[in-house]
Design a protein around this nucleic acid. Structure first.
Lengths: 143, 143
DNA sequence: ACAGAAATGTAGCCAAGGCTATAAATCAAG
DNA sequence: CTTGATTTATAGCCTTGGCTACATTTCTGT
């Protein structure tokens, strides 16, 4: 028995919300890391302007996000130059991209239209735990 | 062809992020509305202290959230008294609860352990569009 | 009825993630 | 090489959602 509230999971515990909030605080970092990785592959480097345009924000917002990435050791950059991911940042981007792909595939597999799957996955992916991701992969492999 | 970027959906559009951010701004409202509804059913009314405890936050944080609910016309309350959902708030709570249940069921159906499904659903549910929700229901009905 | 406990309100701080406006640096032509 | 366009930085503001600390109100038990 993993339930100690004896309600079959109907009463959300505070921890669930705490966990969801923690996941959310990672979401922006993940999105930017992936985007920087995308741009690096496509254009050789990620410029603030391009990052901002693709994220749908203004450039000061992108600058702030990059500042946070740098603080967290996920990216490096010099003034008026492009942004580059650290090894750690690149690893995060790789994990995020993989997870995104699995989530989209799972959604499509259960009948969600491709375009809707892509849109929803952008929000969903940050809340998919490792256990759930594994389950998705297993499900996809079995059909 | 719904794709105008000709990359098969590999390049996220700014709109996707904008949409994900919009969904996120509704998340707190949804969680609190559902929680207030839970407490109203269980205890007859939702007190700030109980809301805070269940959401895993301090009471001033809960007070602020309730203030926002009131501003949005989803709840009403008088000083030092319980919080009650408006008709609109109750409708939101009902939708949220239904969506939560479907998401959990879908996760379990594809092989996610019940407890993990409950935890992940808390974050996931806010990003499930109507189209995706419909697809989930259809998938669940077919098996 | 009143004192202490519990609940609620309020003020003020912080970080994050938006924004606009303005300044400074870089780049690209002519 | 200089000028104008583009890019980047910076300052400052807003909202949200956390928090602590403190004031006030309500509730409870003797």
């Amino acid at each position: 028995m993993t339930e100690d509230t004896a309600d079959g999971g109907q009463c959300p515990t505070p921890e669930r919300f705490t966990q969801a909030r923690a996941a959310q605080s990672m979401a922006v970092l993940e999105d930017y890391a992936e985007m920087i990785d995308d741009l690096a592959q496509e254009l050789g480097e990620a410029r603030i302007t391009d990052i901002a345009a693709r994220m749908g924000v203004t450039h000061p917002t992108a600058t702030k996000a990059v500042a946070r990435l740098k603080r967290e050791g996920l990216a490096v950059s010099r003034p008026y130059r492009g942004v580059f991911l650290t090894e750690q940042g690149a690893a995060l981007a790789a994990r995020v991209r993989m997870r995104h792909r699995v989530v989209v595939d799972l959604l499509v597999a259960v009948g969600v239209p491709q375009e809707t799957a892509e849109i929803d996955a952008e929000g969903l992916e940050h809340h998919v735990s490792d256990v759930t991701l594994k389950a998705f992969e297993t499900f996809l492999a079995r059909r």
